[in-house]
């Protein structure tokens, strides 16, 4: 059966109204099932948390009820205080992430292509990558002061390497047989790069982008724990300090939400750009 015949038979099966309704119900049924199997456990954990907290099985001073957290979240957001923190945090990690993207992708493409450049930079790269960004934070503070610059820089530093390394490996893992094929058709070096190497490296670059985005948020918290008076990471520390435990959890929830959101955005972009890599779905 050809693809088209398959298509046509699907259209035919869905032809009558009742068949269409059945199809709709079946589809929404499986969609609901899929949703439940994906988020069921999460909901159960939250429900258990709520029950445990209200029933007093856990200390509500340490684990306030989900309701209390949500209400702290609402007050913070509607009052605008948490929104300010979100904006400041996004600006810090966003600037750092953008800087890493702008540097790491071109550099990685170059290093993956040109052996001599890779050989020259690799030892330095390995050394830097093995040194924890957090360990270097005091050094950055010393050099750049306790303000925005050192915060952005430590995030930038930590996000740079995952992206750089996955870009390099993406370029190197492009099938050399495809490159040879392009050469046989008379493609210049630049054309081979533009039409074969670059698109071939995109999936791996996306892996790097997702790793880096996660790292950016992780480092954000750490950087905001020292010498900050705004930001979600600051809010986590500050609320704990002032014993506003619901607010602390609200800030943690926001962080988790930002992480999920950035990951979804990247996955979405990846699906759009790399439709071919899961073309069978």
């Amino acid at each position: 059966m050809s693809l088209q015949e398959l298509d046509r038979s699907i259209v035919h099966d869905g032809g009558s109204v009742s068949a269409k309704a059945d199809e709709y119900l079946r589809r929404s049924g499986t969609a609901a099932g899929g949703w439940l199997s994906r988020y069921g456990l999460l909901i159960a954990v939250l429900a258990l948390w709520q029950a445990a907290s209200t029933a007093g099985w856990i200390n509500p001073a340490v684990f306030p009820s989900v309701g209390a957290i949500l209400s702290a979240l609402w007050t913070g957001i509607s009052g605008g205080a948490l929104l300010d923190d979100i904006a400041v945090s996004l600006q810090r990690s966003g600037t750092a992430f953008a800087g890493a993207v702008v540097l790491a992708i071109p550099l990685g493409l170059l290093m993956g292509q040109v052996r001599s450049i890779e050989n020259a930079l690799d030892p330095v790269l390995q050394l830097f990558r093995q040194t924890s960004a957090l360990a270097l934070y005091p050094v950055f503070i010393l050099l750049l002061g306790l303000g925005e610059a050192s915060k952005v820089f430590v995030i930038f530093w930590a996000t740079l390497f995952p992206l750089l390394l996955s870009t390099i490996s993406g370029v190197k893992e492009v099938d050399s047989k495809l490159i040879e094929m392009a050469r046989v058709y008379g493609a210049s070096r630049l054309t081979v790069f533009r039409r074969v190497v670059l698109p071939g490296a995109v999936p791996s670059i996306f892996v790097g982008l997702r790793l880096s985005a996660t790292t950016a948020l992780l480092l954000l918290i750490a950087s905001e724990m020292i010498g900050a008076n705004k930001g979600i990471g600051f809010q986590v520390m500050n609320a704990q300090y002032n014993f506003q435990i619901p607010l602390m959890f609200a800030a943690i929830f926001i962080l988790a939400g930002l992480g999920l959101l950035s990951n979804y955005a990247l996955v979405f972009a990846q699906r759009r750009l790399c439709r071919w890599s899961d073309a069978s779905n």
């Binding site: 047989k177 094929m181 392009a182 039409r195 698109p199 995109v202 071919w276």
Partner: peptide
């Protein structure tokens, strides 16, 4: 023109894109 043992198609291009590839790079 060479036809290798494997088809060596670019996975991110459609059939049309792959077939036109040779002419395009020229």
């Amino acid at each position: 023109a060479v036809i290798f043992q494997e088809p060596r198609l670019l996975p991110w291009l459609t059939v049309l894109g792959n077939v036109a590839f040779g002419l395009e790079v020229r």
